[in-house]
């Protein structure tokens, strides 16, 4: 059971996130970057499936040099090896280009039975990348999993969305994205952190992954950002101390605002 886990380094949601003025892409210098929390759950699920079914866990990311830290974190949790697609030409790639590029990188890993990912990153919140990668690879996508089970060549998932829970199944190989409730990720042990330093990390450029430079990057993107405006910070309005009539005062405010 060979598993690829897609991970992403994102700006910490506890830091201020900015877009650059020059080309409207993420200002990576302004924010602290971390391994996206949902990815830790994807790595954890991969490790649990590996414990039950054997095989190898490979973590894959696409991003600038600093994304190596996200890979190391996953390796210190217990993943076996990592592949890092890093090339200046990838800067500004959109969702479709990213899905195609990731699919190419997954293709460099041998005998993949399962691709695991988080269901939605905290920065782009596209919420569709795993399904798009599946589309490129011609695989089924079982997304928003709160439980994953492998039974021979069948994968069964409890999919939880706003609409409720759906019990779904498909044949392997497949793409599975995990939701918040899937598991509690382990903390890397000291031993794990030390071992991670010796684990193989392959850094690929576009040519190594067989990606045509004309298919990626801001200049070839399938969408374009016309303008970006920081929202004027919301200023606080009226603040009162409750003098026993707080509820009535709110009701009066709502009436004045024509909200009730």
């Amino acid at each position: 059971m060979n598993i690829v886990v897609l991970v992403k380094q994102v700006p910490d949601t506890n830091s201020e996130r900015r877009l650059t003025d020059s080309d409207h892409t993420l200002d990576r210098a302004s924010a602290d970057v971390v391994l996206d929390e949902i990815n830790e759950r994807a790595v954890e699920e991969a490790l649990r499936l590996q414990e039950a079914h054997g095989g190898e866990v490979t973590v894959v990311t696409m991003g600038p040099d600093s994304a190596t830290d996200a890979l190391r974190k996953a390796l210190s949790m217990g993943a076996d090896k990592a592949v890092h697609l890093s090339d200046a030409a990838l800067h500004g790639s959109d969702a479709v280009q990213t899905a195609r590029a990731l699919a190419k990188v997954i293709g460099t890993v041998e005998g993949v039975d399962l691709v695991l990912a988080g269901n939605e990153a905290t920065d782009g919140r596209m919420g569709a990348l795993p399904a798009m990668v599946a589309e490129v690879l011609g695989l089924p996508a079982l997304t928003h999993a709160r439980k994953v089970e492998i039974d021979g060549t069948t994968v069964r998932v409890e999919r939880e969305t706003d609409e409720g829970v759906a019990f779904v199944e498909a044949s392997l190989p497949a793409v599975v994205s995990v939701g918040e409730k899937i598991n509690e990720p382990r903390y890397p042990s000291f031993k794990g952190i030390m071992a991670a330093k010796k684990k193989p990390v392959a850094t690929l450029g576009l040519a190594d992954a067989g990606i045509d430079a004309a298919e990626v990057g801001l200049a070839n993107a399938t969408t374009t950002v016309l303008e970006v405006a920081p929202k004027p910070p919301r200023s606080g309005g009226q603040k009162i101390e409750d003098a026993g009539d707080g509820g009535v005062r709110i009701a009066e405010f709502l009436v004045a605002q024509k909200l009730i």
Partner: peptide, 28 residues
């Protein structure tokens, strides 16, 4: 939360919220 609230009440929600519920009920 008060930095972004249009109307904020510093107080005990267990007093304020039921009073608000009752007041809206009355007005309706």
């Amino acid at each position: 939360i008060f930095e972004i609230a249009d109307f904020g009440v510093v107080g005990d929600l267990f007093q304020v919220a039921p009073q608000l519920t009752e007041e809206i009920g009355k007005r309706k």
